[in-house]
């Protein structure tokens, strides 16, 4: 199982075996966060930078804890309090940070392809922590990891992804990952937010949530990304809730043991009812817990070993 990547820019170009390697490594790291001393010394003396040009709670703190639990130093950079507000470009910002001898850059940016662009001129490892509506690879990995922990497999599961597919990097990365590992993905939402072009990724599209939920193993709810919407994609929030919100009555159409996932932040009462979000079927906090293990695994596999051939 080789893992020959210097960067993690997206799921699209990873092979199924590389994804499996990442998920398996995640299992080994899960236990570390349950120890009394939640730290292993492997990355002592390494420096990782959280370079966030967009707001984030979960991803940024998750990467920060993952790095710290591997004993790396971490620098938190947020654009609002940096020279970016004085007009410094992305390239200059990265080159200046690199001059401080850092090893890995974790980048979140509102432009698709920004992390990829950074790899064209920098020596460090680059991890995409969300680039515009394009990809959010570690979120898809932790989602798949959570499904695997609960369902023991991914093949032939019916995964329904509901909501603002058009603007969602989480949906894109999940579609790539889940289809590569043999799950059956159904996208649901208003036609304006679920482009038919997505069919070429090997998924099904349904505009009727009640119908799509039949026999579902996993229900993944997404937030309406109002910050990325320039115009109105649906007539009213009320109509959206009527048609696409997950409530207990709708949930009963899915399989008895169906799990509910959400990448966060949740808009309670919009895409997901409060009682479901806090129910035993909700994996939302498990996803957050697993996020640290998966990000430790990603850092370990990218930064470890010179030629990155894996020995058992």
């Amino acid at each position: 199982m080789p893992f020959n990547q210097k960067h993690l820019l997206g799921i699209e170009h990873l092979s199924p075996s590389e994804i499996t390697t990442l998920l398996e490594a995640g299992e080994s790291f899960l236990e570390i966060s349950t120890r009394e001393v939640k730290k292993v010394p492997i990355f002592r003396g390494k420096t990782i930078v959280n370079l966030f040009f967009e707001p984030s709670t979960r991803t940024r703190s998750s990467f920060e804890l993952a790095a710290k639990r591997l004993s790396s130093d971490i620098l938190n950079f947020s654009s609002q309090s940096s020279s970016v507000v004085k007009g410094e470009s992305l390239k200059d910002t990265v080159r200046n940070l690199e001059a401080m001898n850092v090893d890995t850059l974790i980048i979140r940016h509102s432009c698709s392809g920004a992390p990829h662009y950074v790899t064209t001129f920098c020596q460090s490892h680059v991890i995409n922590a969300g680039d515009g509506p394009h990809e959010h690879p570690t979120q898809a990995l932790l989602d798949a990891f959570t499904i695997k922990q609960e369902k023991k497999k991914l093949e032939n599961l019916k995964v329904v992804i509901v909501g603002d597919i058009l603007h969602s990097r989480v949906a894109r990365s999940n579609i790539f990952l889940l289809t590569k590992l043999g799950a059956h993905v159904v996208l649901v939402g208003p036609p304006s937010l679920v482009p038919v072009e997505f069919k070429k990724f090997g998924v099904d599209i349904d505009y009727n949530l009640d119908r799509a939920l039949e026999k579902a193993d996993v229900i993944m709810m997404l937030r309406i990304q109002s910050e990325r919407q320039q115009k109105n994609y649906f007539p009213s929030i009320r109509e959206y809730i009527n048609l696409y919100s997950l409530n207990p009555k709708r949930y009963r159409r899915a399989k008895k043991d169906a799990i509910i996932m959400h990448p966060g932040p949740i808009n309670r009462g919009v895409e997901l009812s409060t009682d479901l979000a806090d129910s035993a079927k909700s994996m939302i906090l498990k996803q957050v817990e697993h996020g640290i293990a998966i990000r430790m695994a990603v850092l370990y596999l990218l930064m470890g070993g010179k030629e990155r051939e894996i020995i058992d």
Binding site: F3, S28, E31, I42, G304, G305, K306, E309, D312
Partner: peptide, 14 residues
């Protein structure tokens, strides 16, 4: 770790 030519798969500590 930094000098390793190849990477070792991390397995579970149980």
């Amino acid at each position: 770790f930094s000098e390793l030519e190849s990477q070792h798969m991390v397995k579970k500590t149980e």
